[in-house]
Design a protein around this nucleic acid. Structure first.
Length: 474
DNA sequence: CCTGGAGTTGTCCTA
DNA sequence: TTAGGACAACTCCAG
């Protein structure tokens, strides 16, 4: 039997800055590189359709970087390790930790089982800047408000781990048929699966290119430009971060270099604080392990959500009649991504104007976003819905007309995803039903024909929302 | 212990 | 036309 150590890849599909892999490389035993596709972990929500597509290509790229020596298995991790033990003499297993509470529990059990079998285990932090249990208030309870969490909690704590250089790896060679990714069936049959990947280079080098472009071209105007969906001011790195093709440590320390340059300073600080929001989401999920399914604020359990499948379908398809909302929802279906500003607008619209439970939105995003991530997705939706920790106040209801006019003034973003409105003058782009009929005719927009009438009245639905929120006051 | 001030991303009405 | 306040309640922290 061959003597090996095992590096178990999870949400860290990279060779660079990978603490577990780096540690194992010092042991001078060949490293067996393992990935397990776990679709039978009942507490873990099954990975969404978009997430599967991304995972397929990320694994393919990782396998290539390992010269086709990524061992790909499917099923229950416990049993798979039992099988591997029959085939290899496993001395050591290393992995980078996941932070979803049910994974922590499962990994803990798995770890003690493996230790009982005489295997040495070591786990690492490869995906968070600060361990959630280390950031606490003076009274030793967790923060519930972002600013003090980040400024006082994180920034005053010991600095994040410095990214580690890639080491020379002694890779355990596989028989060729064990690295077959297509056995996982992650790619959908539908045309949608081919369309959605068109704008992405789902690889480590793709991540590096985006990162390089972001820091050299976009960081200088990040703080302001990130509000405008037609600018390419945001990094669009979230899908890569989600599966660990790039680490937040790499981004944090790269960004830190710009703090000393005057024109970059506030922009760099802002980007770092966005990484801080990701930390906060994981932190909340760690300390309040129910936030992916239950309202953080209990009083929201009594919120009068509406049941309306018609509204839900129209929202999902981008047929609400509110162009900025519809553009966002179609960007999502078309590209597996949605600009942050627009995520807030479509979220506010679903929850506050349509009065649909945030969990419906969370589910749709989970299935369609390349960056789908339990912690970020649920914390984000609870923020929009007003039910979260440090959430948007109930009276903050985005107006899809003024948001469109303010953040997509020339309509470039909206028209890109709603070409049927491309001839509408900016003045009426976000409220086409208010345009004089000749203008609509000229622009070849026929409401109810090639673009829908608005499904709710903004003023009316806003008042209903305020009413509903009033009803759950203490 | 108390007290005051500040807090990711808005909107609408009034003067 | 534009600026300011109301729209809450609570968490956290500095003094």
């Amino acid at each position: 039997m061959k003597k090996v150590s095992v590096n178990w890849f999870r949400r860290d599909l990279r060779l660079e800055d990978n603490p577990s892999l780096n540690y194992l490389s010092t042991l001078e035993i060949p490293i067996l590189n393992l990935f397990i596709f776990e679709d039978d972990n009942d507490q873990n929500k099954n990975i969404g359709r978009a997430g599967k597509i991304w995972l397929h290509y990320a694994l393919d790229d990782l396998n290539r970087q390992l010269d086709n020596n990524l061992l790909i298995m499917r099923g229950n991790a416990d049993q798979i390790f039992k099988k591997l033990i029959l085939r290899y003499e496993i001395k050591f297993i290393g992995w980078n930790r996941c932070y979803e509470p049910w994974r922590i529990q499962r990994d803990k059990k798995l770890k003690s089982n493996l230790i009982e079998m005489g295997i040495k285990i070591k786990t690492f932090n490869g995906s968070l800047l600060w361990e959630p249990w280390k950031i606490l208030k003076n009274d030793l309870t967790p923060y519930k408000v972002y600013s003090p969490f980040y400024k006082r909690g994180c920034l005053n704590s010991s600095p994040p781990r410095i990214p580690e250089k890639k080491k020379k790896l002694n890779i355990c060679q596989l028989n060729s048929n064990f690295n077959n990714i297509s056995q996982l069936n992650l790619l959908p049959q539908k045309e949608w699966g081919k369309e959605i990947v068109k704008n992405w280079d789902i690889s480590r080098s793709g991540a590096e290119k985006l990162m390089e472009m972001f820091f050299s071209k976009n960081l200088s105007n990040y703080k302001e430009g990130r509000n405008f969906p037609s600018f390419r001011s945001v990094s669009r790195l979230s899908p890569y971060i989600q599966c660990g093709q790039i680490s937040v440590n790499e981004l944090w320390f790269e960004c830190k270099k710009y703090l000393d340059i005057e024109i970059f300073k506030t922009n760099a600080e802002h980007f770092m604080s966005e990484l801080g929001w990701r930390e906060f989401s994981y932190y909340l999920l760690y300390h309040f392990p129910f936030i992916n399914t239950k309202n953080f604020q209990k009083k929201f359990d009594n919120f009068p959500w509406q049941k309306n499948d018609d509204f839900i379908k129209k929202w999902q398809k981008g047929k609400t009649g509110y162009p900025i909302v519809d553009a966002g929802m179609r960007e999502l279906r078309k590209t597996g991504y949605m600009h942050n500003r627009v995520r807030m607008i479509v979220g506010s619209f679903l929850v506050k104007n349509l009065l649909i439970d945030w969990r419906i939105g969370e589910e749709w995003f989970w299935d369609n976003l390349f960056d789908a991530d339990i912690a970020n997705n649920s914390a984000g939706w609870q923020w929009v819905g007003g039910s979260g920790a440090d959430a948007a106040p109930y009276f903050r209801i985005f107006n899809p007309i003024s948001q469109g006019q303010k953040f997509d003034p020339k309509g470039e973003y909206t028209k890109l995803y709603l070409p049927e409105l491309k001839n509408l003058p900016s003045k009426f782009l976000f409220n086409p039903w208010e345009a004089p009929s000749e203008i609509r005719k000229q622009a070849r927009v026929s409401l109810g024909q090639n673009y829908p009438f608005p499904i709710v009245d903004i003023k009316d639905s806003r008042n209903k929302a305020l009413e509903a929120f009033k009803s759950i006051k203490i």
